[in-house]
Nucleic acid binder design. Sequence first.
DNA 1: ATAGACCTTGGAGTAACTACAGGGTCAACG
DNA 2: CGTTGACCCTGTAGTTACTCCAAGGTCTAT
Lengths: 128, 128
Amino acid sequence: MNIGELARAADTKAETIRYYERIGLLSPPPRTAGNYRDYSAGHVRRLTFTRRARDLGFSIGKIRALLDLADQKEQSCEAVDAIAREHLADVKRKLADLAALRRELDSLIGQCRHGTVAECRILEALSD
Amino acid sequence: MNIGELARAADTKAETIRYYERIGLLSPPPRTAGNYRDYSAGHVRRLTFTRRARDLGFSIGKIRALLDLADQKEQSCEAVDAIAREHLADVKRKLADLAALRRELDSLIGQCRHGTVAECRILEALSD
DNA sequence: ATAGACCTTGGAGTAACTACAGGGTCAACG
DNA sequence: CGTTGACCCTGTAGTTACTCCAAGGTCTAT
């Protein structure tokens, strides 16, 4: 399986796969006679996991930790749970920040009287 | 007024101010005999505006546009309103994305049975 | 005169890719 | 067998908005 096929299988771009290899997130596969990367089903699984976690907003660092944990089958999954909970807390914080932002923008826009720039309330409000 | 004083006045770091100058967002001030940057009240206003807009999540590109508009006092402020509305739309999109994410993470975490890594539902769910 | 706080420049580092440029490989078609 | 076109390779630079650092210059006070 070459890099393009893996990319299609995991809904990624070839460049992203090479990037993941460069930063040590995906192990370097063997090469064909023509120096093409030659991937196996294990790579598909690992990359699919990685992309899904990225889609859910996990950082590369956290994904690295999850992948390491996934290899220690006998350990309790508490650490996995902890990473997920931490990420959820991050998401909640961002949600609250964005909601506050939205309220501010709403009020900013609500002040527009559609006059000239000289008397623009939006620009005024931004200058506080 | 030197760069440190301006930084304190606008709640920024000196490095950020130099960065804004480098990218052309803040005009280069005159220099003192000792080659220190020498800022005036106009710079304070412009930088304060910039920081406030950044805090509200406006990109540097949009701030550049807003600052340009702010200089054309006779124009209607429609364009300002449009930029603010566009930004609000961005924020709303991000809010919706984050809310969906939060639901997914909630369900992910809800599936944890606190067993071993081998039977971890969180890792399983991430592998879909 | 010297200490300490400030300023100067230039360059590198951050996150997570993305986009080339300049070359090599492979499969198919005529 | 030659060539076309789609793919692959490496290495480097760009993206966003800063942040940090090193090596040196300046200013103020003691």
